[in-house]
Nucleic acid binder design. Structure first.
Lengths: 247, 247
DNA sequence: TCAGAAATAATGTATATACATAGAGTGGTG
DNA sequence: CACCACTCTATGTATATACATTATTTCTGA
């Protein structure tokens, strides 16, 4: 059951696995001081560099904390972190085994206005492309996309009609972003939403708002509205992230 | 504008920053082959090991892909991944600057039943501790917690009354988990919910369902229900994760 | 011409070594 | 007894070196 012979593991992968296992199993509880690098090196009969590599990775993944002169300690799990993968909507629909289609509702170039969401930090003076569209999964509305694209950062978008393909994927290629922020919350369907999503008035909807920035400034602000109970975001977590380096 | 003199950076941090910047700025677009390790080493006047360390980190963070004999390439951004941090509820409330309090609504030991949520993989025969409680932020209901604790994995919980402190933090210490899954969706407030959360009937609520496992099996299943528009989950993302190693 | 063998070039891993750095302890001195 | 300088130790970084691994390219021979 333990490490044993998965013979094609590198030394530091084996050691990493061993230590991870000891930590997550509770054998080494939070606060426990792990053996010094030199001791680990001796007991595994490897060089300190190899052990150091392992410890560095453990520290980067937050499983341990290191203090000079004192040693390395199992860190207390403070926040539970999960990797949230927000994939391309088309891919998301297709992975559900349903045919994807898409329709554009409106598209216009305009300046920013007060009526725009307050927490959008595209400057007032900027011109934006304002696109609204619906994504369908097998004929059923899957998600409403309301997007503002900052034309001063992505001028190429001015010419985009997005008649046949949604702006998301195109934008990703055009203006790679360096930072993103997601805000996830729930709202009641009001106004035109119930009709567009084909759900009862006031039904709960899941909203994902994403803002992205590149080196040049704010790129886009998108609000995705999903019918509430029919859609869920799933995030998985295992201790040291994708703890396997590529080999 | 470039690297500049943040003098207290280590060599590989400087190089890492340089390359990250070139990638996210689009100067090196997806598919671009970056210089070979030996060349980078020469141009930065460092050893190949140092460059290798950088490249390994870039690969681990998904920014580049490496192929032997061919070189290293900027990878195309496929899915947008974000680190989702779900913190302890008490910490969450306090970080909003509001006083935290807590009340238990019910607590009982029982066997699993059909009526339990279907996607809960605690075996039918297991005994569980079924706890329901409310978390308050300054007197206002902040979140309803409905939790099942698998007593065959955490027998110590049988004695727990959780009169004074919520089960979440206790459980985290008691039974460190190795895997977790979150499911996030929206529901309308029905049944006893509106009263408990002090919100209108049918108001949209955000639900976070979390299942955790340890080496011994399923540990707990918890469902957190937040008043919809008052609460949001925020996830941030920057290219190479917390790209700073601890120094 | 084409298949297969051998050379080649890149990354991947591991080692020994060196020195830097920062905390914890220690001892001296007012 | 308090405070300071000093030392000692575990981690942090960097290097040169070696060899393994694996695609690609090139060469060879039927």
């Amino acid at each position: 059951m333990d490490a044993k012979d998965t013979p094609s593991l590198t030394l530091h992968q084996k050691i990493l696995g061993d230590i991870e296992r000891k930590i997550v199993s509770g054998e080494w509880p939070p606060g426990h001081r792990l053996p010094f690098e030199v001791d680990l090196a001796k007991s595994y009969d490897v060089s300190r560099m190899t052990v150091n590599k392992v410890m560095t990775q453990l520290a980067r993944s937050g499983l341990i904390e290191r203090r000079k002169r004192s040693g390395s300690f199992v860190s207390l799990p403070r926040v539970q972190a999960a990797i949230l993968e927000i994939s391309d909507i088309e891919a998301e629909v297709r992975s559900l085994g349903r045919p994807y289609s898409y329709a554009i509702l409106s598209s216009s170039v305009r300046r920013m206005e007060d009526t725009d969401v307050a927490d959008c930090d595209i400057p007032e003076t900027s011109e934006v492309l304002d696109v609204t569209c619906v994504h369908y999964a097998g004929g059923v509305p899957f998600c409403i996309e309301e997007r503002l694209i900052n034309l001063s950062v992505v001028p190429e978008a001015r010419a985009g009609t997005f008649e046949t393909s949604p702006p998301g994927a195109w934008l990703l290629k055009q203006a790679p972003w360096s930072t993103a922020e997601h805000r996830i919350f729930a709202v009641n369907a009001v106004g035109g939403l119930p009709k567009l999503l084909n759900i009862p008035k006031n039904a709960a909807c899941l909203v994902v708002q994403r803002r992205t920035w590149s080196e040049l400034g704010p790129v886009t602000h998108v609000r995705l509205t999903y019918p509430g109970e029919q859609h869920s975001i799933v995030a998985r977590f295992a201790p040291a992230g994708p703890s396997s380096d590529r080999s």
